[in-house]
Amino acid sequence: MLVEKEDYIEKVFKRSSLCDEVFLPTMVFKENMEHKLYTTNTLHDVPDELQGNLRYINWWEESLTGASPYVWKDGDEERLEYAASLGHLFARKFDLSDSPKLKELICKRCQKA
């Protein structure tokens, strides 16, 4: 499990460029987990449908401006739990500095796995 590899991930990616964009795909490949992280179901970019790479990224929110995904925050816990129940394994995008409830949920879910 990737959570258990925190020290390795920090050591390898700490000084890399774009590490937040490359560490997960790199680790998934290194740990031979790619077959567990992809579905061939069609992506229609709606919240109730499993997205191809099993990441839950909110691109559909009408209030979004620009080309960035929605940033999950406190109050979104139920939506993220629902996404997990559908089979999503990862979510993006978080700013946990102002979201203690969301951070607590993520920590609990990581301990379950």
Rank of each mutant, 00 (worst) to 15 (best):
V3P: 10
L86K: 10
F23H: 00
L64E: 00
W59C: 02
K103E: 05
E10D: 13
S17A: 05
E62A: 01
D7C: 12
E4S: 14
N41A: 15
E21G: 00
Y82G: 14
L54I: 09
E31W: 06
D45T: 13
L86H: 11
E31M: 14
Y8A: 10
E6Y: 13
L50K: 04
T26L: 00
T42F: 12
L86D: 09
L105C: 06
C107H: 14
C19N: 02
V22R: 02
L105N: 01
V28Q: 05
L50S: 03
Y56E: 06
E62Y: 04
E34P: 09
W60L: 00
H88R: 09
L18R: 05
N32I: 07
N41D: 15
R55Y: 08
W60R: 04
E62F: 05
A83D: 05
E49T: 08
T39D: 13
G87M: 08
S16L: 02
L18I: 03
E81D: 15
H88V: 06
W60F: 06
S85L: 14
K73Q: 12
T26C: 04
K112A: 09
R55M: 09
T42E: 13
K5H: 13
P69R: 01
K5C: 13
D74A: 13
E21L: 03
S68D: 10
